[in-house]
Amino acid sequence: MMDDEVEMVTIYVMGKRHRVPAGLTIMKAMEYAGHQFRRGAGCRGGFCGACATIYRTKGSYKLQGALACQKIVEDGMYIAQIPFSPAEKKTYNIEELRPDAGVFLEYYPEIARCLSCNTCTKACPQDIMVMDYVQAALRGDVEEAAKLSFDCIGCGLCAVRCPAEIVPYNIGQLARRLYSRHIVGPTEHVLKRVREIEEGRFDEEIEELKTLDREALQERYETRERRL
């Protein structure tokens, strides 16, 4: 493709200038520019949270967060990937926990340092009210924290931006686990599906899938995407 055929934009990946076709996602634009992803790419569909990216656009002071596989490049964009946010994930037995404020303070006491600055919410590519769910957890409202954080895919951008060094996605995950285990309990449709699996209802299909070659699998996958 030549520059005069397709509209091109200039982006800066880790400070290096590239001319890339407009309309590409950050991820595709980076690949176009010659980057090969060994980390920081997963489902490519906006579900897995592996491709957390921060960027600034031309003329703006704002540091913004996005998923590289979802965000379309803009002219003059400065891009850096944050493929991993260093954070300790605590080990707990969900069966033994009580769904209250104490459990959050026990495992993640740093939530008490929340400044309510809302930087996490501003960083979230999923448009989740991150600060609100951290605050709900702090006051022991497990249900609210679980519901508000439901769309979290754990990309980690909130955690790298938090001035109080909180890891919000861990809080949301704990809230959702507590909520589903101790407040709503297992739902009927899940129990039904587990029974079906145990009864071998899907065994035949799985066995069939195992015999397919790469092309046939890809065809199935893409048909499934269209069906959805």
Partner: peptide, 25 residues
């Protein structure tokens, strides 16, 4: 509705702005 922790205690340092966000919100 949608209240957040007041961030107790009051920020005494004169140049502090960050700790005003929680109460003012």
């Amino acid at each position: 509705p949608r209240w957040n922790c007041c961030g107790t205690v009051h920020a005494l340092a004169k140049d502090d702005v960050m700790h005003y966000l929680a109460p003012i919100r």
